[in-house]
């Protein structure tokens, strides 16, 4: 009898991909995901056993583990002191009065009565929201178009988006100041009125434009990561094929799937706007960061209390976004795996 070659038969009857009857997939994972999940412990076990054997050969596994833990604790301690030390000091400074030798939360109570505080916070929030809206209105369609139609331009656009990292805000502000001065000599002209609107003290519209540039590197990166997580071309073609117009494709298909990336970009932009001092200060506006420096200088504990509260607020937003964005990202990752 000749040598039997059974490879063709084996291939015909079912390859290694998938496995398991279709439809028997448990919720949260299909048959094609089942194999890696089963295989993973085996792969993980081998190196673990090897390391364990090496440690046993040298003796004193427990001793080594405790040494590892000691180093880990030491590193965590140093990093913790570096990061938390200033915050704890600031908190101590705001709640403890060394002259009276007593604790008090009075500075936090004074916050809301402080002159200019509510107005600066409100203005900063509005500036942040406007900046975020402006940024996404510019970036989302542009990045989608680049990804779909002009992928070769991605590198160029990324380089341009990173420029604000190397251009000093002072230099940027100098340029903006000179542009804002164009209409000064022509009172009554449209450019004069535009200048005035852009520099309104109640809501300086010029700031979101500048902030959008400053936040460009962070927003670009966040959105780019979001775009990479989905198969944009397929989603667009599937929805176009079903009869969706471009605005509907953007609104009902792309934006919901870019939510994680957009939330990340929004948080980074929010943090940047809340902490931005240079541009607003030079241009003569008083958002939150400028108010802390200018109006809070006289009353020692108050500005520190404000800073701590704003930090807590930022963390709260960050956790919220991580929670919301994480769930979406997990869903998308599951799908693409």
């Amino acid at each position: 009898m000749a040598r039997l070659v059974t490879g063709e038969v084996a291939e015909d009857r079912g390859g290694p991909e998938g496995g398991g009857p279709e439809g028997a997939a448990p919720e949260g994972g299909g048959p094609d995901r089942a194999m890696p999940e089963i295989a993973a412990p085996d792969r993980a076990a081998s190196p673990g056993r090897a390391v364990g054997a090496r440690w046993s050969a040298r003796g004193g596994v427990t001793g080594r583990l405790s040494r590892v833990r000691w180093w880990r604790a030491a590193i965590l301690g140093v990093v913790g002191i570096y990061l938390l030390g200033p915050l704890v000091s600031a908190l101590w400074f705001t709640v403890y009065n060394p002259r009276l030798r007593e604790f008090s939360l009075a500075p936090y109570g004074q916050l809301f009565g402080a002159s200019g505080f509510p107005a600066s916070v409100r203005m900063t929030f509005l500036l942040a929201l406007t900046t975020i809206a402006l940024e996404f209105a510019l970036l989302v369609p542009a990045m989608v178009a680049i990804r779909l139609r002009l992928p070769r331009l991605r590198g160029v656009v990324e380089s341009i988006a990173m420029v604000p990292l190397v251009v000093s805000p002072v230099a940027l502000t100098a340029g903006v100041s000179s542009v804002l001065g164009w209409g000064l000599n022509d009172q009554g002209s449209w450019i004069f009125r535009l200048d005035a609107d852009l520099q309104s003290q109640s809501f300086p519209l010029i700031l979101p434009f500048v902030y959008a540039i400053l936040a460009l590197p962070f927003a670009f990166r966040a959105l780019d990561a979001g775009l990479r997580a989905v198969d944009l071309k397929i989603l667009v073609e599937a929805s176009r094929g079903l009869g969706a117009s471009w605005p509907i494709v953007l609104w009902r298909v792309l934006l919901p799937n870019l939510r994680a990336g957009m939330l990340s970009g929004a948080v980074l932009t929010l943090a940047l706007v809340f902490g931005e001092y240079t541009v607003a200060s030079i241009l003569g506006f008083v958002p939150f960061a400028v108010w802390i420096v200018q109006d809070g200088q006289g009353s020692g504990q108050l500005p520190i209390a404000v800073s701590l509260l704003s930090l807590l607020l930022s963390w709260a937003v960050l956790f919220l976004v991580s929670f919301l964005g994480g769930r979406r990202a997990a869903a998308v990752t599951d799908r693409s795996s």
Binding site: V230, D231, I234, L235, E237, A238, S239, R240, G241, L242, G243, A244, S245, V253, P256, N257, R328, A331, V332, R335
Partner: peptide, 20 residues
């Protein structure tokens, strides 16, 4: 005519369902 106006149904090679 654009794809949106052709009244054709298409199934793609890769999984193309809207994940959301």
């Amino acid at each position: 005519l654009s794809a949106a106006k052709r009244d054709m149904g298409m199934v793609f090679q890769s999984y193309s369902l809207f994940p959301h």
